[in-house]
Simulated scan of single mutants.
Amino acid sequence: MLEEAELCFPEFLNSSCKKLTIPHFEVVLMYIVLSSISVLTAFLNLLLIVSISHFRQLHTPTNLLLLSLAISDFSVGLLLFFQTALIDGCWFLGDIMCTVYQYLAYVITSSSIGTMVLISLDRYVAICYPLHYSTKITRGRVKVCIFLCWMCSWVFQSLILIENLKQPGKYNSCIGECAFVISYIAGYADLAFSFIVPISIIVVLYLRVFVVAVSQSRAMRSHIAAVSLQHSVTAKRSQVKAAKTLGLVVLVFLLCMCPYYCVALSEESNSMSAYLLILYYVNSCLNPLIYALFYPWFRKSIKIIVTLKILKSGSSDLSYTAS
């Protein structure tokens, strides 16, 4: 017989799940760490969302893509609160909330990867075809692409998880479990379209961007003394800097995401997958920190928001120096 303290729901002695045997100190530490990451992730990405949405000069095609990514990262921060509920292996929020949590996690992950592909494509056109960038990459087209990215994520994940959505809690083996099961075909389809294909596209595009950016940097250094080329050089330098910054965002994203998918592909233990999933969640906290480090306009907008100057009339028309 199991002791009642070992069960998630002692009142359901014969059907309750068993709690994980984790030292109390580790449980408290994990609660503190996950809660802190969750609050920090939500707060930093909310600052980015407000910045790009409020200040008109920041309504560029590239920043719209960053806005889409920030919305995904902000949602991840909120989902981390649900992740803390599973620290001891017990889910107390019911089958419907379990389904909502898991479904949103799949959709947000898929949309984040799709947005990373769009960011890579944006930098590819900006660096490799700079003369055509303003005509090919417009705010209207970017908005349509972002909409399609999110819609495709919702539809695709709905098809992948249809059995779980039809009957929440269908695959739970005991009360207090939050299980999500997909078929092998659906799993491989998700792996292909949510990982292998987009990652391949991102790597190919950024390899091309890297080669062209290096050649442009050399050309700029050799012509920097020519006064007539100063404007062109400054524009190219700005594009190269943006490519490097967003390249860092993509690289960090890949480093945080690939281990989880690799372990999932190799069918390792669930405990390792859980820790690597948290690593992926941490990535959502790192993105706004990267923007704050490399983008002066983000630092300036944070100062305006924190000091409440954003509430003043005409604050949306404040100008930012190019960066």
Rank of each mutant, 00 (worst) to 15 (best):
E267G: 00
V250F: 03
W297H: 11
T135S: 13
V197H: 07
L131S: 14
D95C: 11
A70T: 03
G140I: 06
L79M: 12
I52D: 02
N45P: 10
S313P: 01
D317A: 13
T245S: 15
S315D: 02
P23A: 11
S173P: 00
L318M: 11
V39P: 04
I127L: 07
L148W: 05
L93K: 15
L79K: 07
Y133D: 02
P288M: 04
Y260C: 12
F156I: 03
R237W: 08
V76L: 06
K303L: 02
F92V: 01
C258E: 07
V107N: 01
F180P: 00
F253R: 01
L2H: 14
Y295S: 12
S16E: 06
L276D: 00
K309D: 12
M1F: 11
I290Y: 01
G89K: 05
R139C: 15
C8G: 10
A192I: 10
Y295W: 02
F9N: 12
Q216N: 14
A105Y: 09
L251D: 04
V282T: 07
K136H: 05
Q239R: 14
I278C: 10
V144R: 13
L251I: 08
C90Y: 02
D88F: 01
K300M: 03
Y260A: 13
A274E: 10
F193I: 13
S222L: 11
W91D: 03
L293E: 02
V117R: 05
S215L: 15
S36E: 05
P259A: 06
T41Y: 02
L66Y: 00
C258T: 14
T60K: 08
S273D: 01
F82T: 12
L64Y: 03
S222I: 05
L318W: 00
H132L: 06
S38C: 11
K309N: 13
L248H: 00
Y320I: 03
T84R: 14
F193D: 06
S38I: 06
L13M: 11
V28A: 15
H59G: 15
F298D: 01
R139Y: 04
T84D: 08
F74S: 04
G114C: 02
I113H: 00
R237D: 11
L58I: 08
N270H: 10
A322C: 09
L148F: 10
Y106L: 09
Y101D: 05
V212M: 11
F82H: 13
I310L: 09
G89R: 04
I96E: 15
G176I: 08
Q216F: 00
L293I: 07
L254W: 01
V214D: 09
I160F: 03
L229G: 01
E3L: 14
S228F: 04
I113V: 15
S194F: 00
T307V: 05
F55L: 07
K236M: 13
S38Y: 02
I71Y: 04
E6T: 10
F43E: 06
I175Y: 08
N63G: 07
I113N: 01
K18W: 01
L66N: 12
L207T: 14
K143I: 14
Q230G: 07
G114D: 06
G314E: 01
C128M: 07
E3R: 14
T109A: 13
T115E: 03
D95A: 14
